[in-house]
Design a binder for these strands. Structure first.
Lengths: 216, 216
DNA sequence: CAGCGGAACTTAACGCCGTTAAGGAGCGTG
DNA sequence: CACGCTCCTTAACGGCGTTAAGTTCCGCTG
């Protein structure tokens, strides 16, 4: 037992602890009492810092994004293509860094304007390259929802990089689908090699932007 | 009180009732006792038909998909572009037909092979057009995760078509972002006109497929 | 036609969850 | 020294998903 008095919590320390715990127990195991335990505090204490659990999840999503941009400063020499590549690969890496990361992220709203600066910078780059504002927004959000959707699906079978969710058997799937040979063969192409497939899909979208808006 | 005896439930009738209820109360209000009430049955009765709540959600997702393909028979004369357009617009329409539809859908796994036939048919069309199997899979899943991600984001602000989620004020957002003029102006471009924006993004992806794989 | 077995439920209960209410310890300020 | 604020605890609530045990009724078999 320590003689010192506890240093009070704040929103960030709670979000940090919750993000740590998330990787151990997943979203369904992420209870307020478990988070409190991690912090040496009882569950209701968290209500001093957050109005409800969703507010804490929002802070967690915001913190995830904060860590992402902390790890990457935008290169002014980037082309728009490189910028899209980097930011979406970084987004995927970030989301995959947490169990159920995509679910937590897409189910929440930012508690601050962390994303505004990156957004502004990207829009500046794009409009300076020749995109209209509307085109720039379309380009950025289309890649964004692609990445979000991809990781959501990915984490449905691989909660964390390298792990496989239980009850999922690729061979069993192929056997059940023997009446649909192409679809059966597609299984190996769908549920493996996520890194390469993500990159390929992202390049498709980027090529589409270039083709549709006539910008190299 | 009726003299007739209750006709027993089955998985489909439960899933139907649950899907109806979903639109009234949303995913967070979709409790087993509420579903039971809808069917004139107590909550534990549902465990006769489903091993747990997730199994019921899985059946709901499967039923959503079943209804989608029931409403659309594939036209053999479709080009691959038309096929991608139709199937992804149909998917979005389906998901938007249920409150939290995208969340329910992407958090579940099919309980039967409903999707195999459509998949097979699409893969046949694509490979016959000149795509390799790997390219065909990439084309189909890339558009698929785009649509899933799009509707997930869309339903974050518009739970059902035409409604707006509470606590979301576009003007307030613009005011908070006054230091980031482009990002602020982008708000109107992001959070409105989802129909047009979805179509535009989908066309981007389709153009990207054509450009990247050299197929018209 | 009696009796049996299984199908399809109900009732009761469990532990846990998010959340609220009330209260209390420790601190700075007048 | 008392007050008030910050930050937490204890106690309690209703509701949730789930399990166990018991009940009812149908259809089959001998």
């Amino acid at each position: 037992m320590s003689t010192k008095r506890r240093v009070p919590l704040d929103r960030k320390r709670v979000a940090d602890a919750a993000l740590n715990l998330l990787n151990e127990v997943g979203l369904e195991g992420l209870t307020l009492s478990a988070i409190g335990r991690e912090l040496g505090v009882k569950a209701p204490a968290l209500y001093w810092h957050f109005k409800d659990k969703q507010a804490l999840l929002d802070e967690m999503a915001t913190e995830m994004f904060r860590r992402m941009i902390a790890g990457t400063s935008p290169d002014p020499a980037d082309t728009w293509r490189e910028r899209l590549r980097k930011s979406n690969h970084a987004l995927r890496t970030t989301l995959r860094g947490y169990r159920d990361g995509a679910k937590v992220f897409s189910g929440s709203r930012f508690t601050s304007l962390v994303h505004a600066e990156q957004m502004e910078d990207n829009l500046r780059l794009f409009t300076a390259t020749g995109f209209t504002l509307a085109q720039a927004v379309r380009a950025i959000t289309t890649t964004y929802v692609y990445t979000l959707g991809f990781v959501t699906e990915e984490q449905g079978t691989e909660p964390l990089p390298g792990q496989r969710r239980e009850g999922f058997d690729l061979e069993e799937r192929a056997r059940a689908m023997e009446d649909f040979p192409l679809a059966a063969a597609a299984g190996a192409e769908i549920f493996a090699d996520y890194d390469r497939h993500f990159t390929e899909g992202l390049e498709i979208v980027i090529d589409g932007i270039a083709a549709r808006y006539g910008i190299d």
